[in-house]
Write a protein that binds this DNA or RNA. Structure first.
Lengths: 243, 243
DNA sequence: CGTTATGTTGATAGCCGTCAACATACGTGG
DNA sequence: CCACGTATGTTGACGGCTATCAACATAACG
């Protein structure tokens, strides 16, 4: 990774970490927490910056503290597919195997908590619970990838966009809508551009835009300033997502 | 799983296992090999039989000894997507989490080497190398799933079929073609029907059939009896696969 | 030899991609 | 503060790829 993208590289305090218990670090306490804290450093990226390229020899791994990271793959002719999105508390990088099989890019401004590879792998060997947690994490990512295989292979553009919005709604902080007592309503900011959504859903920008317009005219969502989505009825949107 | 599909359930001998060193069992020897051998049993399925259903509480895990297993997911309306294919030496099942997130079906006649879940998970906890190997295995599956995300999201029907044939060629025993000295040629039997290929590639049966015909008329493959494929030039087929 | 499963081929339709114009927001420099 | 260029997003017209519907061919099987 180019050094130029590094904004800072500062120690942080695991016992004050907001996402610790959701991240793999939830497996740690006492001395073990101190050990990982000793090697943890914060690193930030601006939206659009590349974190690593495919086949890069990445010498660190880490957790997403805030923001959204896109994992993508490219065909020789430039076609792109986003193969994963990492949100706060998700793990980034591949233990015991240095070279990345996809590239990573900050979709929004991103804060990472990174660990140098070698000492982190030592921790994995020493602390069985930590490796178990990372293993479970990887199995969950595999489940998620298989869910998207079904989506990409068998669902329509409308279903794809609806399901994407459902997924974001689950993973992104809700920004509160006027009708607080309506538990079936939800409101959030899209962390991705239309172009990123297209690359994630195997569609074109235009098709994504048209489907959003259709969901809007059908009353399933409301859109302000392109990125702020209000879903008046989550269950109705879910029905439109095909499951 | 219905007991009716069980053809036999007999002990086997790990030290004579043909796929041991490619499977996760390659991490074992001496006493550890004896320990896993004590819990290993052979189980066979006929082509088309279901091994487990989505959300089943599967009480065993295991290796594929021979044949091909399809992992699939269904939408409520019946649309299907195959999300993984497991070949000889591949691991089947999800450690530390009983309920399956997809269904499994024998694509061909299949022999499995199965381990009851509880004692197998004990082995995983006791033998660090075994868990490491299973972890590495899972990471490879994740890589494979992401490759197919790119395929499903961004590649044409022709590229999909070409890439599928390339993948099968790598994973299935070569049956030898007349021109042995031609290292760029290869010949194999398809383990999947057109319908399975369609469900794997996110296409219809008809489109798969048409693309195979096109590859044949373009001289990229030769087809005998629907299932036997000869590839005169692997590099030319690879070029048609888009990478 | 009939029946079913599997695969191929043709005609047609529809969804989504492509190309293009336009709208809006944002940042930079005059 | 405005002018301009760029990035992002929307909408329309059109075309092509793949799905759908249908007929037929071949193989498998009892």
């Amino acid at each position: 990774m180019p050094a130029s993208v590094v904004r800072n590289l500062i120690p942080l305090q695991c016992n004050h970490c907001a996402i610790r218990h959701r991240a793999i670090c939830g497996a740690l306490n006492g001395d073990n927490l101190t050990r990982i804290n000793d090697i943890a450093r914060q690193k930030t990226y601006r939206a659009g910056e590349t974190i690593f390229f495919e086949n890069d020899d990445v010498d660190y791994l880490g957790n997403v503290l805030s923001g959204v990271v896109k994992l993508g793959k490219l065909l020789p002719d430039g076609r792109q597919q986003i193969v994963g999105l990492q949100f706060a508390s998700d793990f980034l990088g591949r233990a015991f195997k240095g070279n990345a099989n996809c590239h990573a890019e900050a979709a929004t401004d991103v804060e990472l908590c990174i660990f140098p590879r070698k000492p982190f792998e030592t921790l994995l060997n020493d602390i069985h619970d930590l490796e178990d947690r990372l293993f479970a994490n990887t199995l969950d990512e595999l489940d998620a990838a298989r869910d998207w295989l079904l989506l990409l292979g068998r669902q329509s553009a409308r279903e794809k966009v609806a399901k994407f919005l459902m997924m974001i709604a689950r993973r992104i902080p809700n920004i509160g809508c006027g009708t607080e007592d309506d538990t079936d309503a939800i409101r959030f900011d899209l962390p991705l551009s239309r172009a990123d959504m297209a690359d994630f859903l195997g569609l074109t920008i235009e098709t994504v835009s048209r489907q959003i317009t259709r969901l809007k005219t059908d009353g399933l969502i409301d859109v302000e300033q392109n990125r702020t989505i209000t879903v008046p009825s989550v269950s109705r949107l879910e029905a439109a997502s095909g499951q």
